[in-house]
Simulated assay, not measured.
Amino acid sequence: MSVDDGPARLLIVDWLSVQGIPYVDCGMGLDRSVGGLSGFVRITGTDRKAFDDNVGTARLPTENAKQNEYRKQAQITELNALNAVMAVIRFKQHFKLLDRLDEATCYILDTATLDIE
């Protein structure tokens, strides 16, 4: 499913987490800088703890994003692909198909530094 509306995201992810249905919410925020586009790619999920820890923040936004470069640029195909790959990896970790060494409920990749927090 794809949701690009903050209030709808809140309803859907809240319901999924209450029902115990795993989810991974993906998103990005980009802005134009002197050196090009910069920003972040993020994944958040998969359970009620992830919801409670992140709801209403940039890690799980419940309001619609202000206009930014995401809505204006065609050069973000690779960031959308990266976002999808990160989500699949996290989902596989949830089902113990891939190892997981921490308890983070959100991962954010900085597109300028490639640092992940």
Score class of each variant (00 low, 15 high):
1 M>F: 12
2 S>W: 01
3 V>I: 15
3 V>F: 10
5 D>Y: 14
7 P>A: 12
9 R>C: 12
13 V>E: 09
13 V>I: 14
13 V>G: 02
15 W>R: 02
16 L>E: 03
17 S>M: 04
24 V>L: 12
26 C>K: 12
26 C>A: 08
27 G>E: 08
27 G>Y: 11
30 L>E: 02
32 R>D: 00
32 R>C: 01
36 G>C: 06
37 L>N: 07
39 G>S: 04
39 G>M: 03
40 F>W: 05
40 F>I: 11
41 V>D: 11
42 R>G: 05
43 I>D: 06
43 I>P: 13
46 T>P: 05
47 D>T: 02
49 K>S: 10
51 F>C: 05
52 D>I: 02
52 D>L: 11
53 D>F: 05
56 G>D: 06
57 T>A: 03
58 A>T: 08
58 A>P: 03
59 R>G: 02
61 P>A: 09
66 K>R: 02
67 Q>H: 00
70 Y>L: 04
70 Y>A: 01
74 A>K: 10
75 Q>A: 11
78 E>V: 04
82 L>E: 13
82 L>G: 10
82 L>M: 07
85 V>Q: 08
86 M>Y: 13
88 V>P: 03
90 R>G: 11
90 R>C: 11
90 R>Y: 09
93 Q>P: 09
97 L>Q: 14
99 D>C: 04
100 R>E: 14
101 L>R: 14
104 A>R: 15
106 C>I: 03
106 C>Y: 09
106 C>M: 08
107 Y>H: 13
111 T>F: 13
113 T>R: 10
115 D>S: 13
117 E>W: 07
